[in-house]
């Protein structure tokens, strides 16, 4: 006898596909924010499930800080080509060159915050009215409160205290000109759900998610990869370590974890047993203040 009950991953997948199709049907100019990270990689598979055999009704947009992991950039280009979909790259370096933002200086400089301007400029230039993102509510406190169709005003700002109620699976997709949505189809997934889905779907990932030898330095208790732009602080030194990355962001603020997990099964085992959240373990950008993410999101960050 058939049980007529979807598994928990099946139910999450069905919800995400529904969200993607609602967005495609009701917004005129969507895009998918593709970073080459595992969450946006899962979005690509969900988009295949929602729209194939037709082409995706949106291009991909990547905000390239110029400080990304080369393995991830390679993956990004390869995946876009495999899928035969259009990739738009917005570069923070262009925002710096045109004077829209000013590069931070010194060993602690990061382009993480500068990305917001580049992103909002790209949204305006292409007149995108919906940007699909891979954010999840389990990632961070402010995100736990965010809607699936999350409204941004004409300045790209999020107003957490004035969000539209979101009921059933009915999404209010209406906007005024100049405003846009951030749409989060995997809002209800946890980190472990994402990994279990990657395993179930046999999805290929950038190599940095798996254990490898890398030259790193230690700062504020975290291990960072050395990059051509790295400036060490007095007392810091580089050394080789066996690591993997749990999240993928700008090299300047994404920490590595020591790990021997070299297969998806081993990664899942490690994630399931992890005692620290992925952002807590690896993201310097959330550490500034208690409400770091809330503040950045209000400004228009991912």
């Amino acid at each position: 006898m058939i049980s007529y009950q979807l598994s928990h991953l099946g139910a999450l997948e069905a919800e995400a596909i529904h969200i993607l199709r609602e967005m495609a049907a009701e917004r005129e100019r969507p895009c998918l924010l593709f970073s080459g990270g595992k969450d946006s990689i899962v979005l690509l598979r969900l988009a295949e499930k929602a729209f194939r055999p037709a082409r995706f009704p949106f291009p991909f947009l990547h905000v390239d800080t110029g400080h990304n992991f080369p393995e991830v950039i390679e993956y990004r280009d390869r995946r876009a080509q495999q899928l035969g979909e259009r990739l738009i790259v917005a570069r923070v370096e262009d925002s710096i060159a045109s004077g829209r933002v000013v590069e931070e200086k010194g060993p602690r400089a990061s382009r993480n915050r500068l990305q917001t301007t580049t992103l909002l400029d790209a949204i305006e230039a292409h007149q995108f009215d919906a940007c699909i993102g891979g954010a999840r509510r389990d990632e961070e406190r402010a995100r736990a409160k965010e809607r699936i169709f999350s409204h941004r005003d004409e300045f790209g700002q999020w107003d957490p205290k004035n969000q539209r109620p979101e009921l059933w699976s009915l999404y209010n997709t209406r906007l005024r000109k100049g405003e846009h949505f951030r749409v989060f189809p995997i809002s209800n997934w946890t980190e472990l759900d994402v990994w279990s889905y990657i395993q179930r779907e046999k999805i290929d990932l950038p190599s940095i998610y798996f254990s490898h030898r890398r030259t790193v330095y230690r700062r504020d208790g975290m291990l960072y990869a050395t990059a051509p732009f790295t400036e060490l602080l007095p007392g810091e030194s580089t050394f080789e370590e066996t690591v993997r990355f749990r999240t993928v962001g700008d090299m300047s603020c994404t920490g590595a974890v020591m790990s021997d997990a070299s297969t998806i099964e081993q990664v899942i085992e490690e994630v399931a047993a992890s005692r620290v959240t992925e952002r807590g373990a690896t993201r310097a950008d959330d550490r500034f203040t208690e409400a770091a993410m809330e503040d950045r999101k209000k400004e228009g960050y991912f």
């Binding site: 009950q5 979807l6 598994s7 928990h8 139910a11 999450l12 279990s196 399931a272 047993a273 992890s274």
Partner: peptide, 14 residues
């Protein structure tokens, strides 16, 4: 009492 691994059974639902 901090987090421990959960192995979900085949057919676990939501």
């Amino acid at each position: 009492n901090v987090r421990e691994p959960v192995a979900m059974e085949e057919g676990a639902d939501l």
